[in-house]
């Protein structure tokens, strides 16, 4: 199947190096300590952070660090076919683990000993790149909760179809079976914290595709920064002195 037309347009009308439209909103869950909604095109994810709070299961308490937990779930109505998945299926367990490890790497857990941080992410609409969207939403929610972090983590995916590197794959391109690289970076420190790939990609092309994903991550980081700064300003001026 043709994923990039001769005119250089993709299935949804984007250019190969174009990202979908992103939108973020802070403070979607009123009872949570921090929360956010993140959208990338038709992919929509909600994240809520609770904590740092007392560890629920005493045996899991760590005396020098905070315990970070993450739960990923997909709403039944999120994908095309309304599937009733059991709660702990393999895919969501794996993504929970990935998100937990990525976020744990950037949270300064040693500042919050003997406490627990819970991150809940739910996919409201799935259209490819849910993993990236979840990580971006979780970053925003953690920043909103006032949890100290080394840096913001942002994530974006890239692929390689019809011998063209493509940025930010949607569901159609994702299910084409081509290579799909999901990348998570710390933009300020310029470090990679997450790198996952489906299928195979020649080694000389990997660098190109990764570079493209890095550019995507940086663009998202700039947007997230803007949103956070505006939110902080708003909180400060509304409070008054």
């Amino acid at each position: 199947m043709e994923y990039v037309s001769p005119e250089g347009l993709r299935l949804d009308g984007r250019r190969p190096m174009e990202m979908r439209q992103i939108r973020a909103e802070i403070g979607a869950v009123s009872k949570a300590d921090g929360s956010a909604i993140f959208e990338m095109g038709n992919t929509k994810v909600i994240a809520a952070v609770y904590g740092p709070r007392e560890v629920q299961n005493r045996s899991q308490q760590i005396s020098s660090h905070a315990l970070v937990r993450c739960e990923y779930s997909m709403a039944n109505f999120s994908a095309g076919d309304r599937m009733r998945k059991p709660k702990g299926d393999r895919r969501s367990t794996e993504i929970s683990l990935v998100i937990r490890q990525t976020m744990e790497a950037c949270i300064l857990t040693h500042l919050l000993p003997r406490s627990q941080i819970d991150i809940y992410v739910q996919v409201l609409q799935a259209d490819g790149g849910t993993r990236s969207a979840c990580i971006n939403a979780a970053t925003l929610a953690l920043a909103d909760a006032g949890i100290p972090m080394r840096d913001l983590v942002t994530s974006c995916s890239a692929g390689y179809l019809n011998s063209t590197p493509l940025l930010d794959l949607n569901y159609g391109e994702d299910s084409a079976g081509g290579p799909d690289v999901t990348l998570g970076i710390l933009p300020k420190l310029d470090k990679v914290t997450l790198l996952q790939m489906d299928s195979k990609l020649p080694i000389d092309l990997l660098e190109n595709v990764m570079q493209l994903a890095i550019e995507g991550c940086k663009a998202i980081a700039n947007y997230i920064r803007e949103i956070l700064l505006e939110n902080t300003n708003q909180l400060e001026y509304r409070r008054g002195v």
């Binding site: 920043a143 840096d151 956070l228 700064l229 001026y237 509304r238 008054g240 002195v241």
Partner: peptide, 17 residues
Amino acid sequence: LQSLSLKVNFDASVVVA
């Protein structure tokens, strides 16, 4: 409200990193 606070301390807000 925003214009009132801008005169007091302007550009002191920061975000992570």
